[in-house]
Design a protein around this nucleic acid. Structure first.
Lengths: 191, 191
DNA sequence: CGTTTATGTGTACATTTGTACGCATAGCCC
DNA sequence: GGGCTATGCGTACAAATGTACACATAAACG
């Protein structure tokens, strides 16, 4: 095919913006967050992204393909932020602070992220191909944590982050930051 | 067409089946676990429960109503088991063991329960009326834990259960029971 | 036993869905 | 500038879905 995109000097701008596919994927995440997978249709995503319906079948093999792309983006974005926060920590104390920050921050804790995570997890539990997305995500998280904690503790911290994030977003009286700090410290402190 | 004719008609008359509604609800949970909310339709549930399609609209106001009933059942069943396990514990050590048992047992940890929980959470995050189901569930869990732990610790343990359950079901190399024990002990041990 | 009533079901139907595909059109080479 | 081709889109269509509703029939009642 004409996949030769190294046209020197000439901006190879085709008919429309080449970011269109990426934009559709990003918008799809918003649609999923608002309506759930059950309410995510080609037409709704197309309208939200302001592209014609035909663009959907042109850019994606099917609705499953779109979902896969969207959740892959979610996993990468989240893992990026996760790694960045933990890489910035130099000491173990700073690492604990970073973990607390991740839980209480808007990155993991906002409603959108929580909904999307749940949708992805329930999908991954049912579909093996989606499982690879969560596997890669968890592997990156684990590695980032192991920069500061021993493997077993890293696993525990990872699980604790998951649980605290969920409970903070769902609970009637959300956990205080104080409690989050205490919990992380208890887990991260080796007796 | 055939409705007006004197068709041979219904040969499978099942008049007395007072548990039919309950059975449909229970079966609906299985369908949700297998196909997700997105793949849960009146027809699929009807077929799984071996009832005619008409029974669906007869017993439920709509598909949303069915989902609400199903998730309410899930919450009650799970909370019952949760309370039972913790009520049986007499000492703090037994309570810790009970928590570990809940995480590693089939009640919370099997794939079906995990999928259903995720589906419920993502639904609850989007729909306020579903939120009441999760609220009641979490309140019961919290109370059960507070029979053995101080309020702050109970909250932490609750979140930890959530996170460990999820990671045990999703992770490539699932956490060992040994690690679960250690994590619960660290959280439940007040410094 | 005949009539009435409440309960349950078969079926039709308007919508919505995913997807395919022919046509239009912009970029590129001569 | 004139064609050629890849790229993108409008639209059509079959399948599936939620839901309403006219009927059938078991149960209750006299």
């Amino acid at each position: 095919m004409t996949a030769k995109d190294a046209a020197p000097g000439q901006s190879r701008a085709r008919r429309s913006d080449p970011d269109r596919r990426e934009r559709i994927i990003a918008v799809a995440l918003d649609v999923i967050a608002e309506h759930g997978i059950a309410g995510t249709t080609h037409r709704r995503v197309a309208q939200a992204a302001d592209v014609p319906l035909g663009s959907m079948t042109y850019h994606f093999k099917g609705i499953e393909d779109l979902l896969a792309a969207a959740f892959t983006l979610l996993a990468n974005q989240t893992a990026d932020g996760f790694e960045a926060a933990l890489s910035a920590a130099a000491t173990r104390e700073e690492a604990v602070d970073a973990v607390v920050g991740l839980i209480t921050s808007e990155m993991l804790g906002n409603d959108r992220a929580v909904v999307l995570t749940h949708e992805l997890y329930s999908l991954a539990a049912r579909r093996p191909d989606m499982r690879r997305v969560t596997d890669a995500w968890m592997a990156r998280s684990r590695d980032a944590l192991q920069r500061h904690f021993d493997p077993e503790t890293a696993t525990m911290v990872d699980a604790l982050i998951e649980g605290l994030t969920i409970h903070r977003s769902l609970a009637l009286n959300p956990l205080s930051t104080q409690t989050v700090v205490e919990a992380v410290k208890r887990i991260a402190t080796i007796p």
